[in-house]
Design a protein around this nucleic acid. Structure first.
Lengths: 216, 216
DNA sequence: CGGACAAGTCGATACGTTTCGTCTCGCGGC
DNA sequence: GCCGCGAGACGAAACGTATCGACTTGTCCG
């Protein structure tokens, strides 16, 4: 993050205007929702927020960075409003791994089908795909915290399920396992090959857990 | 595709200059390779190709569309050069589905790690994610033909493997199965969460075939 | 204790640059 | 002679930078 030879001096974050920051988040999300990401401009955000352009350029390096923080802020506010003090959810653990995973993936499908999330999330993902710096930030701050929850739930399943029929196999790489669940969802969502449904989420969970091959 | 009331008259494709078309493909791919997709402009492509801007605007609706066709053309030329008359590959069928899938996914990993393919392919995917029209074209012309090969190979495995240990289960949805293989690869490639390696490809195939849970 | 001063962010806007997409030329090939 | 072609002029839109006076904040000196 820190630049070796910082071209200009770093701004003093202590003197930063909280009011402007919030106004910029709101304006950015509103504008993306109304005209889409491509037609959202920094000038437009500044005008809507009642803010000088320089105030945006001073604190963010790119349009994508603004939207990433705006989106993170939105998520935090929504989470705090929902009662949690920390903006971190958990994957339920009823003891039935298959059912729990299906519930979470179905919820994810619903979220991805909701335009309020789909539009900015999609724009961010696309921008991160092309801009490695933004992509790293996107992954680190938005994606990884979510993925970690899957790993934890799977770890719990591994220690709990001593040896039943649905027990996770020994030596399972939880990271790969997680991606087997999440990858197909993301694939269908991003590339729009086929509709993203609850049935699909269920099928992915079943196939990932029990494999494509017949059991003896 | 077809506009109901076509604003301007459609250009006469019979009189189209093949020479310009190729020059534009070359210039587009070169420029993307040199300065990246974001800094590639239509004006720049026209200048490099020695072509008027109007010639590009006449035949393509967007920068992404130009690059998509340039990329398709590149693939076709490479395939033809490699001996095939048709630009369609096949997934090998040695009878050992697991080995065949690993070979193909490893080859895919190598391709995705090759900057000559990675940069334009990534740019196209990102553009398609945000632009539904281009995304549909991207999926239809570039992605689906590749995915169909997986489905065919899996179908062959299902009819061949009558009942061995590695036989595909009855009623398997081949489309979901395919995405279980390809989704995780695409996920890691696009989002750059972790390095894309042969080991990962192998693991994905094993997990997808045999599942995350222990076998009795 | 308090008033002057320096520093730094703020909204606003002017500025030069780049690229966009359209339009208008002659030129030349079918 | 129609029409695509190369070339480039054109106005509109954003870009990112620079500069302005207004305002807030923290420091220092009387």
């Amino acid at each position: 993050m820190a630049q070796s030879t910082d071209g200009g001096k770093a701004p003093d974050s202590a003197r930063r205007s909280e009011r402007s920051r919030r106004a910029i988040y709101d304006a950015a999300l509103t504008m993306v929702g109304e005209v889409g990401y491509a037609r959202t401009t920094i000038e437009g955000i500044a005008a809507r927020a009642g803010v000088g352009k320089q105030t945006i350029y001073r604190w963010w390096p790119s349009k994508g960075a603004v939207l990433l923080e705006a989106f993170l802020d939105l998520g935090e506010r929504a989470a705090r409003e929902a009662g949690a003090e920390e903006a971190v959810y958990e994957i339920p653990d009823t003891g039935d791994l298959e059912a729990d995973l299906k519930a979470v993936l179905r919820a994810t499908v619903d979220e991805l089908n909701n335009p309020a999330y789909d539009i900015p999330y999609r724009a961010l993902a696309a921008e991160g795909i092309v801009d490695p710096a933004l992509g790293a930030e996107f992954t680190r701050r938005l994606l990884e915290p979510q993925l970690r929850l899957y790993v934890e739930r799977l770890r719990a399943a591994r220690s709990a399920g001593a040896g039943g029929a649905g027990a996770l196999r020994d030596g399972l790489d939880l990271r790969v396992a997680l991606e087997l669940l999440v990858g197909p969802l993301a694939h269908r969502w991003l590339l729009r090959t086929l509709p993203l449904t609850h049935d699909y989420a269920d099928a992915v969970v079943e196939y990932a857990l029990y494999g494509m091959t017949a059991r003896s």
